[in-house]
Design a protein around this nucleic acid. Structure first.
Lengths: 274, 274
DNA sequence: CAGTGGTCTAGACCACTAC
DNA sequence: TAGTGGTCTAGACCACTGT
């Protein structure tokens, strides 16, 4: 462990910053460096490895972006604690508030926008709006126990929600009270890296990975009631879904409505082979 | 457009590399820079902005990681072409080969491993193996028309697939011929940034974003037949899923087995507000 | 060959943290 | 105050591309 940063470097195994990145990542994976441990100061690592500080920072910075390390200005660099990963069933149409309540957690909400606005082109298209129609926009940072977990940007036709200020913690609770709860939704999931603004809202470094989920929710009659774009912290969320047989090989089956079984895999910052 | 890189910089709006990053990102978003356009050489940008090349590279590098720019050594830096995003229905249990065939595309496969091996601890746990059991491991890079799209690492109990070399393009086709086709599966989806090895396999820069999908597939009797971990290129894949009403508010419904409707959103490199 | 991106260095100053 | 990470510079050499 004490010679983690000893030479020889430049043993022909690619760029120096890649070699250092690999060494640190392996030390973490093997348990030689444990969560909460501090890394030596960058200047020390540079001196001990014979590399420049810029090169050291390139390796360390990549590990920070991957979520393996945490840097605190004025304090030091530390091995990231294992993240408690939240698993969410994708096949159920639930709200953030309900998800958290089911886990026995409190759900935080910080409003970014809550009012009537002129719709963006994407919202016009998604909600099927006409000229002059307005949207109720509900943008907020959602979290649990003070930790931000997701950015949620919801848009509803103003006709369905003329008083967005009436929305409290749970949009779905209000919709249900008004007999406007959606019964069906289509979600699209993709991966994205976070820009400066969104990263700041979630309290993660720029470039951190996230899950982007776009959801269109429908009323029983088929009308779209909600168009929501969310960004979930990639280091804090898993989404689980149960699949059934492909239709061309047999009849479709109904999805199970029970909770997804727990998974045994070790939780921690998600990263691929370093 | 010609003064995109003119001063004044350091107008108090944060670090210089963030300001430059924002300028370029906005130029792309606004259409001032179009897909295929070339950026000036880094040394030119440095000279015109008055920044050092290191700082310019920090801005450009972030945009490359986000998928907005593409760099080619010896050639130049270019605005990334709009990526053709593939949308895949998550609620159907299909194979990569079938997914591509349904789109009328040819499916490529490059084997990384195809044989019997001693199982990893994760595989023992996922497949419920006993001591001494072996696994058939099928690791490959999958793509379409020569473009790598995903890394797929499948493991099956050796008892169910004693001859992994018999697997051709489609594992599921072989399983079906042997009456071992799974009828149910549980998937877990998360986001991850790519390490050096996986990035190289997919032909994307280190740190690029990906969707990580872990799948456990079950036979009609409930036995696990397949444990697969896949990494899909984040810039090339959307996953779509249809949701139904949460069970506590009504009876569960069956999932739709028809293809997910097309989406109108502009395709392009996924990124959040820069 | 000239030009490009890829890597690396040595040194500097700043902002923040901990004592 | 001393030490830390955050930012930035000027300059160098290499590997590769295109002509």
């Amino acid at each position: 462990m004490d010679d983690l940063f000893a030479g020889p470097f430049d043993s022909g195994a690619g760029p120096l910053y890649v070699q250092l990145h690999r060494r640190i990542a392996q030390a973490i994976a093997s348990g030689a460096l444990r969560p909460g441990d501090g890394l030596p100061p960058e200047r020390d690592i540079a001196a001990r490895t014979g590399l420049s500080r810029v090169t050291v920072r390139k390796s360390v910075g990549a590990l920070v972006a991957e979520g393996a390390l945490i840097q605190r200005r004025g304090s030091g660099t530390f091995i990231a604690p294992p993240v408690e990963r939240l698993e969410q069933a994708l096949s159920l149409l639930t709200s953030f508030t309900e998800d958290m309540a089911r886990r026995g957690r409190h759900s935080d909400s910080r409003w970014l926008a809550r009012g009537l606005h002129a719709p963006s082109p994407a919202e016009v298209m998604a909600l099927g709006l006409g000229a002059g129609d307005q949207v109720a926009r509900l943008d907020r940072v959602r979290g649990s126990d003070g930790v931000p977990l997701a950015i949620e940007r919801a848009a509803l036709p103003a006709q369905l929600l003329p008083d967005p200020q009436a929305v409290g913690d749970s949009l779905y609770a209000l919709l249900q009270a008004r007999d406007l709860r959606p019964v069906r939704a289509v979600q699209r999931i993709s991966a994205a890296s976070l820009g400066a603004e969104d990263a700041a809202l979630l309290g993660v470094p720029v470039g951190a990975v996230s899950l982007r989920i776009e959801r269109r929710s429908y009323l029983p009659g088929g009308r779209i009631v909600e168009y929501t774009r969310s960004l979930y912290r990639g280091d804090a969320y898993d989404f689980a879904v149960e699949l059934t047989l492909a239709p061309q090989s047999g009849a479709p089956k109904s999805v199970a409505s029970h909770p997804v079984p727990p998974h045994p895999s070790p939780s921690g910052p998600e990263r691929t082979a370093p």
